[in-house]
C-alpha cells in the first residue's frame, strides 16, 4: 500500500525541527530508505515561488502563489510503501517535522 507523507510547516514558526528528541531528518531518511519503506522524497521551495495554473474557457490563467493560501504550507513530501495505515502512522510519527509541524498521511487512490 502506497502512502504520501505531506510534510507541513506552519508559517512564522521556525522550520528547524530538532528539539533534541527523536530522529534527525538525516537519520529518518537513512532508516526508512534502508528498510525499503521510503521510496523517495524531497523538499519544496517556498510557496511564494509557486505558480497556480487554471484553464478556463480555453485560456490559461496563472496566479502567483499556492492554490490554498494558508498559514500551513507543504514543505516537502515522502512516498512510502507500507503494509498498512498503522505502519505509515508509525513512520510519520518518527519524522522530525511531526514534532515541529505536522504530517498528513494520504493513501493513494485504489479505486
Amino acid at each position: 500500500m502506497r502512502y504520501m507523507l505531506l510534510i507541513c510547516a506552519t508559517d512564522g514558526e521556525d522550520a528547524g525541527p530538532d528539539d533534541g528528541t527523536g530522529m534527525t531528518i538525516e537519520q529518518w531518511v537513512e532508516e526508512y530508505d534502508r528498510r525499503g519503506i521510503r521510496l523517495e522524497g524531497d523538499r519544496f521551495a517556498e510557496p511564494s515561488d509557486a505558480t497556480t495554473v487554471r484553464v478556463r474557457g480555453g485560456e490559461v490563467l496563472l496566479t502567483d502563489g499556492p492554490f490554498a493560501d494558508t498559514k500551513e504550507r507543504i514543505a516537502g513530501y515522502d512516498l512510502l510503501e507500507c503494509a498498512d495505515l498503522d505502519e505509515a502512522i508509525e513512520v510519520a510519527s518518527k519524522h522530525p517535522m511531526a514534532r515541529a509541524g505536522m504530517v498528513e498521511v494520504r493513501p493513494f487512490w485504489t479505486g
Partner: peptide
C-alpha cells in the same frame, strides 16, 4: 478502513 488500509488485527504489543 478500505481506502487507507486500516489493518484488521489486534495491534502488536507496543501499540
Amino acid at each position: 478502513i478500505r481506502a487507507a488500509a486500516i489493518p484488521y488485527r489486534v495491534p502488536p504489543a507496543h501499540l
